[in-house]
């Protein structure tokens, strides 16, 4: 049987940019064999195949309000990946995104995979952030970038596939011995040592 790898993914971005909509779309679109419990739209899981592994995404939503910003480290500690969402129709949200990237670089887990999602691409006629700006910025921080539409289910799947691809595969022999490897485990422990 295929090994299941649990990957903690953290969702960051301004309130109203559609963080949880993307995840809802991602989780709902495919029929999941074993329906895992969720915390509303705040915590969801989904398992997808990747190579000879199964990636079980544990997706943690965060509150986008400015006043809760300082609580974010609790949520992104131990994450294998972060999905940072902005609204292509709101320049401000792209600005917030940059702040998150900066914070993750400084305080986030090492080797965290960053994926930038420009949501609401169905509204590209009122866009404020150009595709080019986003690409250039993503390249500068070597992050994945896609424009998505949770509403029309555009690029949602691709976003997570992109993350899967960026996760370094396990050694083949380790793979055979141990069923479950939790990437999150080691990293979270080291990060907690400080407190």
């Amino acid at each position: 049987m295929m090994a299941i790898r649990e990957l903690k993914v953290c969702l960051l971005g301004d309130t109203g940019v559609g963080k949880s909509s993307i995840v809802c779309r991602f989780v709902q679109d495919h029929f999941d064999h074993n329906i895992s419990p969720t915390i509303g739209a705040s915590f969801m899981t989904k398992t997808v195949p990747c190579g000879n592994e199964l990636h079980k995404f544990l997706i943690w939503d965060t509150a986008g309000q400015e006043r809760f910003h300082s609580l974010a480290p609790m949520y992104y500690r131990g994450s294998a990946a972060a999905v940072i969402v902005y609204d292509i129709t709101k320049q401000d949200s792209f600005h917030t995104l940059k702040k998150w990237v900066k914070e993750l670089k400084e305080h986030g887990p090492e080797n965290i995979v960053m994926a930038i999602a420009g949501n609401k691409c169905d509204l590209s006629d009122i866009r404020e952030v150009t595709m080019k700006d986003a690409r250039e910025y993503a390249e500068s921080i070597s992050a994945i970038v896609v424009e998505t539409s949770a509403k029309n289910a555009i690029n949602v799947e691709e976003l997570f596939q992109g993350i899967s691809k960026q996760i370094p595969p396990l050694n083949s022999h380790e793979n055979g011995n141990i069923g479950t490897i939790k990437l999150a485990k080691q990293t979270s422990q080291t990060s907690r040592r400080c407190c």
Partner: peptide, 27 residues
């Protein structure tokens, strides 16, 4: 149980912890 790490329980506990932190804020 360390198995819970990253999972639903961890998330819920983190959520409560963040409330606890929030309530401590000066504001």
């Amino acid at each position: 149980d360390p198995k819970n790490e990253g999972g639903i329980y961890d998330f819920m506990l983190t959520a409560i912890e963040s409330c606890y932190e929030h309530i401590q804020k000066e504001e």
